[in-house]
Design a protein around this nucleic acid. Structure first.
Length: 296
DNA sequence: CCTTGAACCTGGGCGC
DNA sequence: TGCGCCCAGGTTCAAG
């Protein structure tokens, strides 16, 4: 489920094993994911130390000690698994270790770092994920990152910013919030959830939040709070699943989470005293779940 | 510029 | 049991 909270959960899971770790070997098991891997991919990583692991929107950024940066995106089905060493100096002897690699294990980072030797396995059945490399000083201008909107977790997102970005938008709120240039990191699930919390219809035109009567900034402020809340709660949930057990099989990035509206077609609305029924509609080719009774 | 829809790819679930 | 269809967390490209 790689929307922003899942990517952040993955980042937090990878950091202890990877930050400060040296890449001893990079195993690349096919020539491409969504795009071909970078030129001399393994050569550019092997021998390097990972200075820090950051996130921007749904992208993971591995900053290397030679100022190169690996940009990774999980697409729809990408996941990482960490196999940490058990202290013994036996190659291949790892906790949570798979006896053999699975068919969609495409990249394996063999690292030596704060947690000792570890294997970090990238698995991605659909291969919508990708890995790119750039230089640190070119990161902000990189085509994949340039033009991304503000992080919902930071302090750059505000009612004023949304007002400005929604003003000329004839698109429905659902599409506007999915647009990474307006806000970065939301995906299909959390847009549905945020709109439900805010009591706003996904079909409503974005600009009407700004132009309609009343107090536009008040409505937008409520939307901003809903977005922040949904994202924060999901990160907390991911964080707790990491703390608890990671996941029985060690896979990062997936955790059980019950949503208020997503995938609840036909259920009673969970809002107090609402009594509506959750509906599923299709907007720009993707499922939207919402309550027609309390989302206006 | 803006908006929509198809494409990319595999696997799971459902109806027949 | 098997086949065909629909659906799935995202992004990008082409066409209107």
């Amino acid at each position: 489920m790689p929307e922003l909270p899942e990517v952040e959960t993955v980042r937090r899971g990878l950091a202890p094993a990877m930050e400060g770790a040296r890449v001893e070997k990079l195993e690349q098991r096919r020539p491409d994911l969504r795009f071909p891997f970078p030129e001399r991919f393994s050569a550019r990583l092997e021998g390097r130390t990972i200075r820090s692991l950051r996130r921007r929107a749904k992208y993971l950024l591995f900053e290397l000690d030679d100022d190169a940066v690996l940009i990774a995106h999980l697409g729809m089905s990408g996941s990482f698994q960490v196999e940490t060493g058990n202290g013994a100096d036996t190659p291949g002897d790892f906790h949570h270790a798979r006896s053999t690699l699975a068919s969609h294990d495409h990249v394996i980072f063999h690292v030596d770092g704060p947690m000792g030797r570890a294997r970090i396995i990238y698995n991605d059945p659909r291969r919508f994920g990708f890995m790119l490399m750039t230089r640190r000083d070119e990161l902000d201008d990189h085509p994949t990152l340039r033009g991304l909107g503000p992080e919902p977790t930071g302090n750059t997102l505000s009612a004023e910013v949304l007002a400005e970005r929604f003003a000329a938008k004839s698109a429905p709120l659902k599409a506007a919030l999915l647009d990474q240039r307006i806000i970065a990191g939301l995906g299909n699930i959390y847009v549905c959830e945020a709109l439900w919390r805010a009591g706003l219809s996904p079909r409503r035109r974005a600009a009407t939040l700004v132009t309609a009567g009343g107090r536009p900034l008040l409505r937008l402020e409520k939307l901003v709070q809903s977005i922040r809340g949904v994202i924060a709660d999901a990160i907390d949930a991911g964080g707790s699943s990491l703390r608890d057990h990671r996941q029985t099989d060690g896979t990062l990035g997936y955790f059980q989470h019950r949503f208020d509206v997503y995938d609840r077609e036909g259920d009673r609305c969970r809002r107090e005293d609402c009594g509506g029924t959750i509906r599923r509609i299709v907007q720009s080719g993707r499922s939207t779940f919402f309550c027609p009774a309390c989302q206006r």
